[in-house]
Simulated scan of single mutants.
Amino acid sequence: MPPAPRPGSIPRDIAAVADYEPFARRCLDDNAWAYLAGGAADEHTLRWNRAAFDAIRLQGSVLADVSGGHTRLTLFGHDYAHPVFLAPVAHQRLFHPDGELATAQAAEAMDAAMLVSTLASTRLEDIARVGRAPLWFQLYVQPDRGFTRTLVERAEAAGYRALVVTVDAPVWGLRNREQRAGFQLPPGVEPVNLRGMSMPGTPQLAPGQSMVFDGLMAHAPTWRDIEALRGLTRLPLILKGICSARDAQQAARLGIDGVIVSNHGGRTLDTLPASIDALPVIADAVGPSLPLLLDGGIRRGSDIVKALALGARAVLIGRPYLHGLATAGALGAAHVIKLLREELEVTMALCGCARLQDIDRRILFTPLPGRTSEPEKR
């Protein structure tokens, strides 16, 4: 389907974040849409990320005094105006000609932290120069470990506040929707931060060897690489893509500063649990000493409250701000953040929470055993 012209402004009938999705679909061709909207394999995890939030109920609280309330928080030694962060997404010029530069402008306008992808279509230094949004750098450990070190040094020199290592995609997931669409990067869109990196040659496999185990995974990072990075950088080191308590505990043992509970937006291993379902299990396993963030499925301010109640300190949004970006550029992406922050404040007030620290599991409604709040079907 050929893309329609962008509206040029925020469409009048957008009242919620989800309203942007159909506009974004009309503004993008089939190639870009397959990359943005698709998940791995049968896309169960992609759907569960959203459905799991809908299954969680809030317990409101009336007559609470929330005067002077706010959404401020401190993470890894820095203050943030609110807990809505922009997840790292590759190749953003697929969705708008200004790509990551427009996203950075939106982040600055709305006081949001932005995580910049290794596979950005704009140089990480150029993103850092366009504004004053707090930036974190998302790192894919490259087969060339020397080049990986260079990426870390560049991020430090450019003023990035944290290093986020994605650990759940040593090989790409089975992205059948992209395969069916014949996805490819169009001319002018490339991972510019990887220019000049030497690539390993095609492995010569002996009879009986596996292309996956002995080929594609030959240069995949391990916990040893994480230990090396811990000693390499002065930045807070955060692991993104952990869904199991065991892996989170190992991260804590290695002195990792934080974990982003994430299933990569349902794009790597299908039938992983929804991120919000994995969150409380991990929170219970590691305790409050290891800060947790959550990525995946956020579409409402009430979703943010649910994530904070279950142990997250902040949340990351991905597809929602890209829908805004595709529709109306920086203005659309900023509007998405604005909507979520306003909904977050309304939900907090109606739950009797004046500050993020007031949000805990007590604001979640738990039905009596054997009972449900769903209406009986007749």
Rank of each mutant, 00 (worst) to 15 (best):
P2L: 15
P2F: 14
A4E: 14
L28T: 03
N31G: 10
A34G: 05
Y35I: 06
E43G: 04
H44D: 13
L46Q: 05
R47H: 12
R47L: 08
W48L: 12
F53M: 11
F53V: 09
R57D: 15
L58M: 06
Q59W: 14
S61M: 14
G69V: 06
H70I: 03
R72L: 10
T74H: 06
H78N: 15
H78K: 15
A81L: 11
A81P: 07
A81Y: 11
H82Y: 00
H82K: 11
A87E: 04
A90H: 10
L101E: 09
T103C: 14
T103Y: 05
T103E: 12
A104C: 11
Q105C: 13
M114L: 15
T118L: 03
A120S: 15
A128E: 02
Q142T: 11
T148E: 00
L151N: 08
E153H: 04
R154V: 06
A158I: 07
Y160V: 00
R161V: 00
L163E: 02
V164F: 11
V165G: 02
V167L: 02
A169W: 07
P170K: 12
V171Y: 05
F183L: 06
L185S: 05
P186T: 07
P187V: 01
E190T: 00
P191N: 08
N193T: 01
M197C: 06
M199C: 12
P203G: 12
A206N: 14
A206F: 13
Q209R: 11
V212F: 14
V212M: 15
G215A: 12
G215H: 12
L216S: 14
L216V: 08
A218V: 11
A220N: 08
P221I: 07
P221M: 15
T222H: 11
T222I: 12
W223G: 03
D225G: 00
E227F: 04
G231W: 09
L235S: 05
L239V: 02
G241Q: 06
G241W: 06
G241N: 03
R253I: 10
G255R: 09
G255S: 10
G258Q: 07
S262G: 12
S262K: 00
H264F: 02
G265W: 02
G266N: 06
D270N: 07
L272G: 04
L272M: 13
P273Y: 07
S275A: 15
I276F: 07
L279F: 08
V281S: 07
I282G: 05
L290C: 11
D303H: 07
D303F: 03
D303A: 07
A307D: 11
A307K: 10
R313Q: 15
V315N: 07
I317T: 04
L322F: 00
G324V: 04
G324A: 05
A326K: 04
T327F: 03
A328W: 08
G329Q: 09
I337C: 00
L340T: 10
V346Q: 14
M348T: 01
L350C: 10
A354S: 14
Q357C: 02
D360A: 01
L364H: 10
F365W: 13
T366L: 13
P375W: 13
